[in-house]
Write a protein that binds this DNA or RNA. Structure first.
Ligand SMILES: NC(=O)c1ccc[n+]([C@@H]2O[C@H](COP(=O)([O-])OP(=O)(O)OC[C@H]3O[C@@H](n4cnc5c(N)ncnc54)[C@H](O)[C@@H]3O)[C@@H](O)[C@H]2O)c1
Ligand SMILES: NC(=O)c1ccc[n+]([C@@H]2O[C@H](COP(=O)([O-])OP(=O)(O)OC[C@H]3O[C@@H](n4cnc5c(N)ncnc54)[C@H](O)[C@@H]3O)[C@@H](O)[C@H]2O)c1
Lengths: 216, 216
DNA sequence: TATTATTTGTGAAGTAGTTCACAACAATTT
DNA sequence: AAATTGTTGTGAACTACTTCACAAATAATA
């Protein structure tokens, strides 16, 4: 796989994930090939968008026929880096953390939660879905020892930056945070934040401004 | 508040949410005014971006001085529709649903979970954070009776579309879904989907393509 | 009160992302 | 085998978003 001189936008990456899912369904439905038109329809996009997104990474289709479902799915998996397993650590096993350890989609996509950390003595040493909860004071050594490449932050906002700093210090280059707060990471580290309150605010904005969205 | 003839982009709405949070912190820190430069710095944006975003909705600043912290925060709350309470229903009280009912940020922002629904007889009639779990078969009447304006979908992907259809049928115009599946709603309904697996795929993409992001 | 220093608000310019449109090619039909 | 149909891949055109740059306005200072 070769990237072609253009910067890949976050929107393209996001859509690759969508294509990946649709291709899985198409595969189950028995389709052998799919056109950009059909794939676009399933994701409410334009065929040109689908073709353009894929074109950044190579030529996967056959003119007159479309894309081979199974092969394209595999190619996208490779592009997204989900044709392999990733060692994940979860920090904070409260409401959100507990939900995440039973999220089947993670395992199916190869994101394997290997370690759980908390600072609550009542939780340390207990097991969640077969994974032991470790003391967060041993964070750095444990992350290194178990080759953790990806960390999920599910601790209270007030301690999140401190934990993030430790995780970054341990050399981890990718973090997903659920803490509704601004976190700083160096530019060579990727962090994404899931902020559910902000999602709700998009909705309330739309409900509130429904009728004034355009001016006459 | 008057919208000025331009379409407001989702990115602008998202940034308004960020400004809102930063202004809350600034308020706590005792700041009376804040410049676009300072606000931008806190959110890793440009000052021009901050000013442009706000300019879509009016003129809130004073030249030479900046923006009044408390007042601007209130204005943004009004724009986002979070200067009031919203009646929310949660459908599916499993791992995710249980986490959400104890998410303090929701209540703080005025998103009040009034009703919980499930189809599991063992859960129906029980209470979660003081909210009774209702039988999902009574969905439509209950949503109407309690003037629910916003619905959170936390049921398995396999039943999500059916539930969404019922909710839309009941006249609800805004949904937040956690089911990792494509859901269809009419164009006059706003739906947002939180897909954590896709968030992880962004991260694995970046880890995988770190070095080929550009071509020499 | 005049001068200097700041900072907004916004058209214009620049950049990024999406869609168009069509040549190139493969499959299917006649 | 020729004609027709379908679909990709991709520059070019278009659209949307971001940043620039500066006049206008206010605050601070002398
Ligand atoms: N509950 C939700 O639905 C929800 C939704 C979105 C975001 N969030 C955010 O996700 C984060 C976690 O939320 P939650 O509801 O699971 O909270 P929680 O209080 O249930 O869980 C937090 C966990 O982190 C642990 N913890 C605290 N300090 C720690 C430290 N220094 N090191 C390691 N572990 C520590 C606690 O012991 C606890 O187990 C919070 O930032 C919250 O705002 C929660
Ligand atoms: N667990 C996670 O961390 C996580 C993360 C992201 C997304 N999700 C998604 O969120 C959704 C919920 O996940 P979960 O882990 O809470 O699952 P869960 O199985 O724990 O909870 C689902 C709940 O929905 C109820 N339910 C099932 N069918 C129903 C119906 N027809 N009407 C009403 N209620 C019904 C079940 O009784 C259960 O209480 C799923 O779509 C899941 O893929 C989960």
């Amino acid at each position: 796989m070769r990237i072609t001189g253009k910067r890949i936008s976050e929107s393209t990456i996001h859509r690759l994930s969508l294509y990946f899912r649709s291709l899985g369904i198409l595969e189950k439905e028995g389709y052998v090939t799919v056109s950009s038109k059909d794939l676009a329809q399933r994701e409410k996009l334009t065929p040109a968008q689908v073709r353009k997104d894929l074109s950044f990474f190579g030529q996967f289709g056959t003119r007159g026929l479309g894309y081979p479902v199974v092969e394209l799915r595999q190619q996208i998996a490779e592009i997204l880096g989900i044709n392999r397993k990733w060692n994940v650590a979860l920090i904070g096993i409260g409401n959100v953390g507990s939900a995440l350890v039973s999220f089947k989609e993670f395992i199916r996509q190869g994101f394997i939660i290997k370690l759980i950390f908390d600072n609550d003595q009542r939780k340390i040493g207990s097991f969640n879905k077969g994974i032991e909860v470790h003391d967060v004071t041993n964070l750095r050594q444990m992350l290194n020892k178990h080759n953790i490449e990806l960390v999920i932050i599910a601790v209270p906002a007030s301690v999140a930056q401190r934990i993030v700093d430790e995780v970054v210090d341990a050399g981890v280059k990718a973090l997903l945070s659920f803490a509704p707060t601004n976190l700083r990471v160096p530019s060579n580290v990727t962090m994404r934040t899931v902020n559910m309150a902000i999602e709700m605010e998009h909705l309330s904005f739309h409900l509130t401004n429904e009728n004034l969205y355009y001016t006459a």
